[in-house]
Every structure is written in C-alpha cells, then in structure tokens.
C-alpha cells in the first residue's frame, strides 16, 4: 500500500495528498533501519512543555532512549508506535506518574513552561493539578457522578462554597459534553454509566481542576466507534483551552485529532512532525513501514 493510498484512507486534506502524489513510494530520507536519530523538527515556537535528552529505565532495562521534543501550547500531539515502544512510559514522565513505580528512573530534562518537572522543589501534587491525565480504561471513582467531578476541586481547595462547586461541576460536565446525559442523575454512581460516558466523566474530572496540559493514554481503546467519535470531537473542542498529548494505537485517530505526531520505536523517538506530513510523507523508513502497516 502506498502512502498516498493511506493518506486518502485517512481522509487527509487533498492538498497534502497532491503534494506527495508526485513522489515515489519510498522517497524517505533515512533508509537505514539502524539509524535512530530523530528525524523532523522537535522544536516549536510556543512550547508548553520542553523535553530534552529524556531517558527512562525500569531497573536495568532502558525503556526511553534520549528523547527530545517540544509540546506546543494548545496543540494536540499524538504519540504513535508499536506496542511496547514506550509511548505510555514517556507520557507518564510528563506528570511524573512514573514516580509510583519504584524501579523506574528518569534522567534528562522536562520543563513545563519555566518549571523543571523533575526539580526537587516541584511537588507532584501541584504538577498533577497542572498536568491532568486520562487513562486507557475508564476509571471513575466508585462514587457518584457529582463526587467524581468535585473531587479534584475539593482536594485542591479551588472552591469555597457549595454553589461554586456545583457550578464548577456542571461547567466541567458541560465542557466534557456529558451534561445532557447525566443532568438528572448526578447522584448515581459514576460506574453505572456506559464505557464512553465513563471516559467522558474522567475527562470532566480532569478538566474540573483547570489543568494546562491533559495527557491521554489510549483513551478510546476500550470504547466502541460511536463513543470514540464523541471523544475525538471533544478533544478537538478542548484544544482551544488545553494542550493535549494523546497516545493512540490507531493511526486514523492520530490523523483525525492531532496537529503533530511523534513516532516511537523501541524506546527511540524516530520521527516527529506535522501530522499531515508524517502520514503522507514520512522521512524515516521505520515510520513508513509502520504507517503502511508493514509491522505494528
């Protein structure tokens, strides 16, 4: 399958397809499989997060190898790659969720605006309030829908009155596109919702604390196509106010929701660039093999 065919499959803009139509199938710049130097522009102008030389080890095993990239403000950046390549591991470095794994060790630098994420003076509580997370499997607390959304604002002391909290909960559910479905049942357990609704509840829970960045680790992998479409729509809307990093195993999803895409392979960041370009005109042979379905 040619990259052009993939591009039309993915419903990319005709212009992008046209630009590449003239190129031959393997017009990649890096054909050497052993070359693991990152291809593409890692720097952006309005960076929200800056990662430089990040290595992650689980005990002796290195899961992320010298990865550098920028995450731009108000962009959706997708991490793709075969499973086990370290997408989740890298994502979890961004809000230090890896701290909970005792064997895990992170070196290098990750900055959120001007703050060093791994600096001793940064408290993970504060960091995670600024960098929210949505997990692969919807994981609402076994409490009411209201309590799920109210939890973050409560523990961070964001509101003073019940009325403020009510407003914040409604607003968050509204922005997560869930309010119509749950308006009448705010006191029912969050676990009573359908899978897609649960995931949107988790998104509402995350945005209730007004984070700057939202990390999503394969948020749709447990959902049916219709629920997936709703989440993707939501991601597109949320981009206005938040920076979103999404890990996905679905290339179509990456193409649909993201502006930039990073391709990981066995712990290396192989290629990064505009999503259109990655899918229509990959520059590394490994990327091309992956998006044309030769492995993955």
């Amino acid at each position: 399958m040619s990259t052009t065919a993939i591009a039309t499959d993915l419903g990319l803009k005709p212009a992008a397809t046209a630009a590449t139509a003239s190129r031959s199938v393997s017009s990649v710049e890096v054909t050497d499989y052993d070359n693991r130097q990152t291809v593409g522009k890692i720097v952006v102008d309005n960076a929200k997060m800056i990662c430089r030389g990040v290595n992650v080890y689980y005990g002796e095993k290195q899961a992320i190898k010298n990865v550098s990239l920028d995450i731009g403000a108000n962009e959706v950046i997708a991490f793709i790659g075969p499973s086990g390549c370290g997408k989740s591991t890298f994502l979890r470095c961004l809000n230090r969720m890896n701290d909970t794994i005792t064997t895990c060790r992170v070196t290098g630098q990750i900055k959120l605006d001007d703050d060093d994420v791994y600096d001793k003076s940064i408290d993970v509580v504060q960091l995670r309030a600024r960098v929210g997370m949505v997990f692969q499997k919807p994981n609402p607390f076994p409490k009411s829908i209201y309590e799920n959304v109210a939890y973050g604002p409560r523990i961070h002391g964001m509101v003073n009155t019940k009325a403020e909290l009510d407003d914040l909960v409604r607003d968050s559910l509204e922005r997560a596109g869930l309010i119509k479905e749950v308006e009448k049942r705010l006191n029912e357990p969050g676990t009573s919702l359908s899978g897609g609704q649960q995931q949107r509840l988790c998104i509402a829970r995350a945005i209730a604390v007004h984070p700057e960045v939202i990390l999503m680790d394969e948020p749709c992998s447990a959902l049916d196509p219709i629920a997936t479409a709703k989440i993707e729509e939501l991601i597109d809307e949320l981009r206005e106010n938040y920076t979103i990093v999404i890990v996905t195993h679905s290339m179509q999803q990456a193409a649909r929701v993201s502006q930039r895409t990073a391709y990981f392979h066995l712990g290396d960041l192989i290629e990064i660039g505009e999503t259109d370009q990655i899918f229509t005109n990959p520059k590394h042979k490994l990327t091309e093999d992956y998006i044309t379905g030769r492995f993955g």
Partner: peptide, 20 residues
C-alpha cells in the same frame, strides 16, 4: 486503576489512601 485515578488528579498519597 483507582489509585492511578486519584494520583492522576493530584491527590497526595495519604489522600489517595484515605479517600479511596
């Protein structure tokens, strides 16, 4: 997953244990 949810919201370890 419940622990991750709580930690991901920025709960401290004691809050995670105490609340959930």
């Amino acid at each position: 997953s419940i622990r991750e949810a709580a930690l991901g919201m920025g709960a401290s370890k004691l809050q995670m244990v105490g609340h959930h």
